[in-house]
Design a protein around this nucleic acid. Structure first.
Length: 583
DNA sequence: ATGCCCTTAC
């Protein structure tokens, strides 16, 4: 039998959880473990680096029961094992708190290794970010990893500004730090700032790694920044980088969300390892381009290739049905999810079904689905049903929906705006006005429409009614020209049904003409003279008038215009749209 | 130490 030192040496080389557990059992049986802190340390350390780090937790209790005192080495390993445990590990959070208290009692919490491990536990499993920050500020020394962990944790919590503060005060920033920050902005939905961050990273000569490029691609996808996304792809090719499943999926997503579904497909087909995320990304990519049946074919291919769809893959497939009006197929999928795969539908799946049914005019069935579903409907569910009411001009049901929706989101404007829209579109202008007064009383604001257009790698942003653009005079002049040409050649009459403002008719024309996508298209027509397609990304869905106008512009000006709205794509060409007027 | 897909509406 080897001595304690031999076991310690053996454990330091052992990475396999089951083998470690066997050694542990032998040490317990021989009574050796009870006498040695070093053996506890070695076991905890080995387990913390294995695939089952949570197996280290009971060892701490064992150590204390044996009357042994933890060393400065015990605590960091144990804390690491806690930080890496599966999220649902019972008692992990309580153990973390106990270990922290113990560290304080023993006067160990300011040791470099201990304090860094504590920061990671606070930022991770305990979710107590500000406590982690306090530790970071009071520790005698802090490593870069702790900064990076806290930055990531703040970013994940949607506190990008706090993450940025830490980033700025870091003594030395590595590619990991930049990556944490870029991805932080992406998670906060601020792709623009993420790209800005990446530009700075390059300016400082830091070599980008896979992870940051995944983040940059996600930022491009979010922002519709095709040219920058293509640049990343070119960079990867130029450096001969292996396209991992992470990079491949990010590329597919970027191309699809930037309107280049064929390029997305090319990358997808070249990927050797396709996991369920990769398949789902491509399925959703086809879906948002209205290519529902191809998306569903892909779903079947995924199944026959042996990749098991998960709950999110079903969301992608149901979404494909919604965008292509494939109601029966959607119902079939929803059933097969339970029957074939035993996946219990979540509220998201009910959301897809309500959307699918409601958008296709089956409002009664959609309402029934909500009444039958086993969970309480959330704002998304009501929003989906409401969108159907708007599409099919059902005032009565809309009023019912709003009552429920407003209880869930009393401070948000979504329900009010939609109801006012439905009233206005049905000619009930007094009711629409009442809603507007109510909104003003409650102090809720409508999210302003915002469109961006990427021209020669620069992203230009337009907000509805915003006349502060430096070239606004040229833009309005251009709009005037567009307006008269489409009136003259195509008989355009502005569709003012959904304009809610209490204003004169000519002013309604102005209000419509200042929708953000119209400003963006006019601007793009001014500064691009070639036949390059115009690519617009909008934060909301396109209104009927803008949809109509864009069709006419594509014909009169002989330009392809690709508009990505909140949820899908519209490719306008020769006077018609790829969505077949269904959105 | 960091990274990929995920339902409504505004």
């Amino acid at each position: 039998m080897a001595g304690a030192a031999g076991y310690v040496e053996l454990l330091s080389r052992c990475g396999e959880a089951r083998a470690i557990s066997r050694i542990q059992a032998a040490l317990v049986t021989s009574g050796r473990l009870r006498r040695s802190v070093e053996l506890h340390d070695a076991l905890i350390r080995a387990l913390s680096r294995s695939a089952r780090p949570h197996l280290a937790h009971p060892l701490y209790a064992h150590l204390l029961r044996a009357g042994l005192l933890p060393t400065p080495h015990t605590l960091p390993s144990l804390l690491k094992s806690i930080a890496l445990s599966p999220a649902a590990t019972p008692g992990a959070a309580a153990l973390a708190v106990a270990v922290h208290a113990h560290a304080v009692k023993l006067g160990l919490e300011r040791f470099l290794l201990v304090s860094n491990a504590l920061i990671r536990v606070h930022a991770g499993i305990l979710g107590r970010l500000d406590d982690g920050l306090l530790l970071l500020r009071t520790a005698s020394a802090v490593d870069a990893a702790s900064f990076n962990t806290l930055i990531t944790a703040y970013a994940r919590a949607g506190r990008a500004a706090d993450a940025r503060k830490l980033f700025d005060e870091m003594p030395a920033r590595s590619a990991v730090s930049w990556s944490a920050m870029v991805n932080g902005y992406v998670q906060a939905g601020d792709g623009r700032e993420a790209l800005e961050m990446f530009a700075q990273m390059q300016a400082e000569g830091v070599c980008p790694d896979d992870t940051v490029l995944v983040g940059v691609l996600a930022a491009c996808a979010q922002h519709g920044a095709l040219e920058q996304g293509k640049w990343v792809h070119g960079y990867l090719k130029a450096h001969g980088t292996r396209i991992t499943v992470f990079l491949g999926t990010a590329l597919v997503d970027m191309y699809a969300k930037c309107g280049e579904v064929q390029l997305a497909m090319d990358v997808f087909e070249a990927m050797k390892d396709k996991n369920v995320l990769a398949w789902t990304t491509m399925i959703k990519g086809l879906a948002i381009h209205g290519r529902g049946s191809e998306a569903l074919t892909l779903f079947s291919q995924m199944e026959s290739s042996g990749v098991r769809p998960d709950d999110i893959a079903f969301i992608g497939a149901l979404c494909a049905c919604t965008h292509a009006g494939l109601v029966d197929k959607g119902r079939e999928l929803f059933d097969s999810m339970v029957r074939k795969y035993g996946i219990k539908p979540k509220i998201e799946h009910y959301g897809c079904m309500v959307d699918l049914l409601a958008r296709n005019g089956l409002l009664g069935e959609a309402k029934e689905m909500i009444q039958k579903m086993p969970m309480k409907p959330d704002a998304l569910i009501w929003g989906a049903l409401m969108a159907g009411c708007r599409f099919h001009k059902n005032v009565e049901l809309a009023e019912y929906v709003v009552k429920h929706w407003i209880l869930l989101e009393p401070d948000k404007s979504g329900a009010y705006v939609l109801l006012a829209n439905i009233y206005a579109a049905s000619g009930r202008h007094n009711s629409a006005r009442e809603i507007r007064h109510l909104m003003r009383e409650k102090g809720v604001d409508k999210t302003p429409g915002c469109s961006t257009v990427e021209i020669r790698g620069i992203i230009h942003q337009f907000i509805v009614g915003d006349l502060s653009h430096p070239r606004i005079k040229d833009i309005l002049t251009k709009w005037h020209e567009i307006d008269s040409r489409i009136r003259l050649q195509e008989g355009y009459i502005p569709d003012k049904k959904e304009v809610l403002l209490d204003i004169e008719e000519e002013e309604k024309d102005d209000a419509l003409s200042r929708h953000s996508e119209k400003l963006a298209i006019a601007f793009a027509l001014i500064i691009t003279s070639d036949n390059m397609p115009i690519r617009i990304v909008k934060n909301l869905r396109v209104c009927h008038d803008c949809h109509h106008v864009t069709k006419l512009i594509s014909k009169v000006y002989g330009r392809e215009i690709i508009v990505r709205d909140r949820t899908r794509f519209h490719l306008f060409k020769d006077g018609s749209c790829s969505c077949k007027d269904y959105w």
